[in-house]
Every structure is written in C-alpha cells, then in structure tokens.
Nucleic acid binder design. Structure first.
Length: 359
DNA sequence: GGAATTTGACCACA
DNA sequence: TGTGGTCAAATTCC
C-alpha cells in the first residue's frame, strides 16, 4: 500500500514536472493549464486516499485522528522527500479543502443580492441587502455635490465567511486573505462585545475597486472572525494592479496557512485549483462578463506591478507563496520573463527526488 | 512625506 | 429615532 501510494505521489510530481516544462506552451491555453493542475491535484488526492485507507487499516484505534494524520501524511512525505516546493503547499491546501465534509460548508454564508444570511445572530440583522444607491459620486468616490452625502444601500453581493483568528500572537489581527485592505472605520455594534471593523480595498482610489469587507469578532468565540465581503475586486483587472487570488480562494489560503480556520469558504472554495487559476474564474471575479480583460487572459497580470499581496498594516509584508506561484505561473509564459517554475523549484531540484528515484 | 489607522460626527435606512 | 455604514480630520507609523 505504501509503495503504491508512493507511486501515486511520484506520478503527481511527474505531472508537476511536465507542467513546468510545458508551461511556456500552456501559458496562453488556460484550459489545458487548468486540466494539468486538476490532474496533479487528482494524483495527490489519490495518493492521499491511499494513505488514508492504509492508516485506517493499520490504526483503526486511532480513527478519531485519521484526518489530521492523513493531512500530515502529505506533509510528512513532503518533508521526508525533502520537497519544500510551494506547490506542495497548494496541493495540500487543495486536498484539505476537498476533504472538508460538506456540513462544514454550511457555516459559510453566502447571501446573494438582497439576500440575508441565515444566521440568526443580532449582528446579521444589520447586514441588509440592497442595491447601490444612485448618487452623484465622482471617480474618486467623493461626492461632487456641496452637500456631503454618503452612499448607503449596498454594493451588491455579500459573502460572509467565518475565519479563525490566530491563537498565538496578536489575535486582534484580522485574518489575511490575500488582499490589501485599508481600514476606514470601526464601530461598536449593538449586541456585540467586539467592534466591527470596516475595510476597503487599498486600491480603491487607484483602480476604483469597490471591494469592501467587514470584520466582526464573534461574541461566543473571540478567536473567530466573521468576515463579510462586499463588492468585487476590480483592481486585479489592471495591468499594474497587484495580483491576488479570489476572495474565496484566498480565504482558503488563510485557512490553510493558519491551520485554524473553522469553516469552509463557499462552494467556490472547493473549486479545483484549476478553476481559480483559470483566467475565466479570475475574470469572473474581476467584474463579471463585462470585464473586458476576461477571456483573453492577457488583461490579467498576476503580480505584474510587483506589489504583491501583503497583509494590511497589522500583518505587513506577509508573503503569500500561492500568489507568488500564480504570479510566476502566469507570467512565465510571457516572452521577457526569465522567471519560470525554476523560481518555485529554485534550488530544490534535487529535492524533487522521491526516494531514490528522481522524477 | 505618504500611507494607514483612529475616532468622532454625519447620514441613510428600517 | 436608533443603529449601522461612511466620511474625514487628526494622529501614528514607516
């Protein structure tokens, strides 16, 4: 069984290698790229399941801890094979996302336009849906009339997720989600012990990005944040805008990086890696079908400006290897870039050996 | 000096 | 009218 699983892992690595070598050709073929990524994920998933079964068979008495063991299996294997490649992080993330039982997804509340969260908390009543109030607002978001007006109503869809806060260090820091946010307000909310923080996309002014989020710490669990996203990021549609994964995927990243997320992001969170890597998905997130750049892929430059994803001030300069990888993956196809998957595989080429066999 | 955060006040909505 | 969401001046940080 172990041998078989090892073979499956090796197959995964082989696919990674193949993807790497074919990347220049696939760069402008997102569908093929997606497919390759899916294959890689499937290979590792199969390996994981093999390990899972093996452990169940070998350690039935420890069934309560099967999942963590399974999860650490990949990690352990990765370590034992000296593989420190970031893609392994991604694959592990994906595997964990896939294994999350459906019931936990119910914790993720997706309220569509005008929708309400099913949550019955006192907080949720404040989150009402609605359309953007038509106002005379200039590009910079400043009301042009002399009388100061404030936009209300809503900017469309709300997506609420709950994310665990770090239990060590500064637990006041809202979980990193791959985007950069600027806090523009904080308010005590009736019935809540903790104030609600209001954030907008750092690039709101530069790119008129309407994305906002509210971060509310749960009363009954101070280590859990309820994060409500509003509006879609349009900043990554710019050729100079920072690159970022979509919120849902980003939430997954936070999830996996902290290892303490309590809930799964919406259905989109379980989308295959290929889906959120795909141009289509990025385009969709970036403003829907109206997004001119979506589809061609050329308009989406991941990390093109060098202003890679970082945390807000509180978590400044937090590197996101996933975004970096996406950056490399999508930019490596461009003619001038010398950065390739080698960046990701950097000096660890040797470490891609599995046991005594190099892939 | 620029950007981010804080915080009190303003405004829209239920 | 109360509450949530936003604005913007003041402050802090890098």
């Amino acid at each position: 069984m172990e041998e078989m699983t090892s073979l499956l892992f090796q197959r995964g690595f082989k696919l990674v290698r193949e993807l790497e070598s074919n990347l220049p050709n696939l760069a402008d073929q997102p569908n093929m790229l997606s497919k390759s990524c899916d294959e890689i994920v499937n290979a590792f998933r199969n390996a994981k399941e093999g390990l899972h079964l093996h452990m169940m068979f070998r350690q039935p008495q420890e069934s309560q801890q099967q999942q963590p063991q399974t999860e650490t299996s990949l990690e352990g294997w990765r370590r034992s094979s000296n593989c420190t490649h970031p893609i392994m992080e991604i694959l592990q993330m994906q595997l964990q996302a896939d294994r999350t039982p459906p019931f936990s997804r119910s914790d993720v509340l997706f309220a569509g336009e005008g929708g309400r969260e099913a949550e019955g908390s006192a907080r949720s009543k404040s989150i009402g849906g609605g359309e953007l109030h038509p106002m005379d607002v200039s590009d910079s978001g400043v009301v042009s009339s002399s009388q100061r007006q404030r936009r209300r109503k809503d900017d469309g869809e709300r997506r609420t997720i709950t994310v665990a806060a770090p239990r060590i260090g500064n637990t006041d820091i809202p979980p990193e989600d791959g985007y950069t946010w600027r806090k523009y307000g904080q308010k005590e909310i009736l019935g809540s012990k903790f104030p609600r923080g209001y954030y907008r996309c750092t690039h709101q002014r530069l790119y008129h990005c309407p994305a906002k989020k509210q971060v509310q710490r749960l009363d009954d669990d101070p280590y859990t944040f309820e994060v409500t996203y509003r509006g879609e990021h349009t900043c990554h549609m710019s050729s100079t805008a920072p690159s970022i994964p979509p919120p849902a995927a980003a939430a997954d990243i936070t999830h996996e990086m902290t290892q303490i997320i309590t809930t799964q992001p919406p259905p989109s969170s379980s989308i295959p890696v290929s889906s959120w890597l795909s141009m289509e998905y990025l385009g969709m997130r970036g403003g829907g079908s109206s997004g001119g750049a979506s589809g061609s892929g050329s308009g989406i430059v991941l990390g093109g400006g060098g202003a890679g994803p970082s945390a807000t001030r509180t978590g400044k300069d937090v590197e996101l290897p996933v975004a970096d990888m996406a950056d490399v993956m999508f930019n490596s196809g461009s003619s001038s870039s010398n950065i390739s998957m080698d960046f990701l595989f950097h000096s660890n080429d040797d470490k891609w050996e599995t046991g005594d066999k190099q892939i």
